[in-house]
Amino acid sequence: MDSSDRNKPPQPPGGPHLKARRPKGNGVTEDAFDLWLQRGLHQLYDDVASEPIPDALLRLIEDDRSRKDK
């Protein structure tokens, strides 16, 4: 697996048209495609989501909060 493969979501099991349902321990079923999509999105975006929020954006948020409080 090269580095370009890391940026691609995994192939869906049986294709996106497959509607295999798998019961979970609490009786809730998950669609196989939904599970594939969730894992693929986590694989692609977890690194970005864990990055710190830039200081300039934090200042904008705080300025907006202070304006709303007035």
Rank of each mutant, 00 (worst) to 15 (best):
D34M: 06
P9N: 00
I53N: 06
G14M: 08
L37K: 14
P10N: 07
D31S: 12
E51F: 03
L18T: 15
N26S: 14
K19H: 14
G25L: 10
Y45M: 05
E30H: 10
P10R: 05
G40R: 01
G14C: 09
F33E: 10
Q11K: 12
G15T: 09
K8P: 00
K19D: 14
R22C: 06
L37D: 06
S50L: 05
K24C: 13
G40K: 03
Y45R: 05
G25H: 14
G14F: 07
I53K: 06
L44M: 14
E30A: 10
T29G: 06
I53Q: 08
D47F: 01
P12W: 09
Y45D: 03
P13D: 10
D46T: 06
P12H: 11
A32W: 02
G27D: 05
S50N: 08
E30W: 06
Q38M: 06
V28C: 07
P12F: 09
G25M: 07
A20R: 15
A32V: 15
A20K: 15
A32S: 15
L35R: 08
G40F: 05
K8G: 00
G15N: 11
D47L: 01
D46V: 01
T29V: 12
P12V: 10
Y45G: 02
G27W: 10
A49L: 11
A49Q: 03
A20V: 14
P16M: 11
A20L: 15
P23Q: 11
P16S: 09
Q11T: 10
V28I: 13
D46G: 00
R6V: 11
S50F: 00
Q43L: 09
P23I: 02
G15M: 10
P52R: 09
W36M: 09
G27R: 03
N7I: 06
P16I: 11
Y45W: 09
R22L: 10
E30Q: 14
P12E: 09
D46I: 02
P9W: 00
V48L: 08
P52L: 04
S50Q: 11
A32T: 15
R21I: 06
H42M: 08
S50M: 04
L35V: 11
F33H: 07
A20Q: 15
Y45T: 03
L37I: 04
I53H: 04
L41C: 09
E51Y: 02
D34S: 10
Q43A: 13
T29F: 12
R6D: 11
K8F: 04
K24D: 15
Y45L: 10
A20S: 14
D31V: 01
H17S: 14
Q43Y: 04
L41H: 04
P23S: 12
G25F: 11
P23C: 07
Q38R: 15
P23K: 09
R21C: 03
L37Y: 07
P10Y: 01
P16C: 08
Q38S: 13
L18W: 12
R6E: 14
G27E: 06
P23M: 05
G14H: 06
A49M: 07
D46E: 13
P16G: 02
Q38C: 08
E51D: 08
I53S: 04
